[in-house]
Design a protein around this nucleic acid. Structure first.
Lengths: 346, 346
DNA sequence: TTGTATGCGTTATCAT
DNA sequence: ATGATAACGCATACAA
């Protein structure tokens, strides 16, 4: 593995000159630079990133710690991160965070000296573990309640989104509106529940705890909760699921019971994953600009890296948009337009 | 940002001792180790990964160069890579490869000294650009035709998969079977076309170039190609799309024209993306264990990293499995079972 | 325009 | 069991 010394020797120059050729800094006579480059190519030399960053104190890499990498949400999120980071000349070092605080802190430490900053999303992180981050490592939290910690964060406007969906359900004339809640202890889930309740209260509808069913963000959970709701008398007139996966599970349960959607029961979800518009009937949902979360996170992190000296913690919030489809009675069938996204094979 | 020296000074030991405590190598008296760890915690010290790898010559990081990060295919692929890498104690440094050879080579050089090996997937790479990789950097190719290059590679068994799907179509009694081809110049696409032709030839059916339509792996492309096929007389009895996205586009076109599937025209896809079973009718496809591609790639790469000295290039091939659903006349409706995958929100 | 020398934070070698 | 010190590969201040 050729080093800068090998190139210097072969090209009959000093290592400083080789360095200048590759780093772009300083001035080198064109003919010299040319000779250096030729030798480098012949030797298949490339500067050693680790060594370089040791002295420049810049890795041009962003650490990304996520709870999982699976499914459409994370695909979209990573895409948003990647595009933005890339535009600024940064690579991304991805890692799923491990379970529990200890492991997350370990993962964060492992990134020390390999990244210039950290994008962190984890249900298990709190202010105290944030206090254990290697000092001087900028961090931006993604969809992670800051818990009083003084770091930047990007959140989804869950409250407004949920409230808007439930208001929409109310505007359709429904009053017995059920919710299938998200995972217990989850921040987004709690906020969506809060939005649901606020909408009902604003409309002067009494809250009914029997209409608030537990869920876990999975299809199976939505299926089970919907089955329970069907056995109630009177049945709810509408169901708001705290995410689309659960709404899809609920749709399955309703279909199996022969309940027509939206005629007998209206169903709304949250997130607007691509699958939503393919459902039968197409699922109304609350669209979240997931990629924006990543993009905003990167921007905040880069900003934090540049202006290390305090700039108070910045909290940003990505907004949502109600998407009405047939499952809540949109008058016309929405035909999924041909999707311009590239196919799976490349 | 505390360094090993700071810790050594505060704990009244030498840097060597601190190093031993954190690297686990060598022996340190328990009481000493304890003192060192306490000081380290107080100083929020963590070893600097870059400096460490400079001398150990190990980064415990795998570079992943992909053409894109978008959609279900890459989500699944990265997941497979991540799980396997993680199990072996490796992080992954992800980057979309840039357009064209020059940029890819640049991206590969940028990884020098930051990763122990490279997982590379790119339509633009050839034997020559592989020759420009920083010397001594192990590489494994993913779904990338090796072009005579002497490196490890993991491929999909496109040929067998396509042949099996077309044989299935033939077994249904169809003889006029059309194909919507994948992107021009794409290796997987070419292999799937080859499988299609082989199946027809084996059955003694003459090839008809008019039944081989151009496609590009997108829904829109599938839609357009299907529309063209519908205008032919006589119409084809079945359509094999070289991936599911195009099959989904084709399904849209058929539905708009009021053509019943599978009664009037049968439709099969390739890849078996999650969406396939949600189609109406559910789409028959060729399942590819995408995550396995990533897993096998990581294993091959790790093996290559360990046994640097030649071991000839290894070529592996992940197999496929025909999944018959209603779009090619599976007798009963397959109801999507509740999906246990986690929801989009976490 | 180019070369020399120093240091980045760590581990490894060799003493003690 | 612990310490002193030389690498690791590179960038940069300073000298020439």
């Amino acid at each position: 593995m050729a080093t800068i010394k090998d190139v210097a020797r072969e090209a009959s120059v000093s290592v400083a000159t080789v360095s200048r050729v590759f780093s772009g800094a300083g001035v080198v006579r064109e003919v010299t630079a040319r000779r250096v480059r030729d030798v480098a190519r012949a030797l298949r030399y490339a500067p050693h990133g680790g060594a370089r960053s040791l002295i420049t104190r810049r890795t041009h890499t962003l650490g990304v710690l996520l709870p999982d990498l699976y499914g459409e949400f994370f695909s979209e999120l990573i895409h948003g991160i990647d595009v933005t980071a890339r535009r600024e000349g940064y690579h991304i070092l991805v890692s799923r965070s491990w379970e529990g605080r200890t492991e997350i802190e370990e993962a964060m430490r492992a990134m020390k000296g390999r990244v210039d900053g950290l994008l962190l999303m984890s249900p298990d992180v709190d202010a105290e573990s944030l206090g254990n981050i290697p000092q001087g490592l900028p961090v931006v939290l993604l969809c992670t309640p800051a818990g009083g910690a003084t770091v930047d964060s990007i959140m989804i406007d869950n409250f407004r989104g949920a409230r808007e969906m439930v208001r929409h359900l109310i505007s359709l004339g429904h009053r017995r509106i059920a919710i299938i809640k998200g995972a217990a202890g989850n921040y987004d889930a709690a906020e969506r529940l809060r939005g649901y309740r606020a909408a009902l209260r604003d409309a002067g509808i009494d809250l009914d705890r029997a209409l608030e069913r537990d869920g876990d963000f999975t299809e199976a959970g939505g299926y089970a909760a919907a089955a329970e709701l069907l056995s109630m008398t009177p049945r709810p007139a509408a169901i708001f699921a705290a995410n689309d996966s659960m709404a899809i599970g609920a749709l399955s349960a309703l279909r199996e019971s022969g309940v027509r959607v939206p005629d007998e029961i209206a169903v709304g979800g949250f997130d607007d994953i691509p699958l939503a518009r393919y459902m039968d009937p197409p699922l109304s949902s609350v669209r979240v600009a997931i990629a924006d979360i990543g993009a905003l996170g990167v921007e905040a992190l880069l900003d934090s890296i540049m202006h290390k000296n305090g700039r108070g913690p910045q909290k940003k919030r990505v907004s949502t948009e109600l998407v009405v489809r047939r499952s809540t009675g949109a008058p016309y069938a929405e035909r999924p337009p041909p999707n311009r996204r590239k196919g799976i094979s490349r």
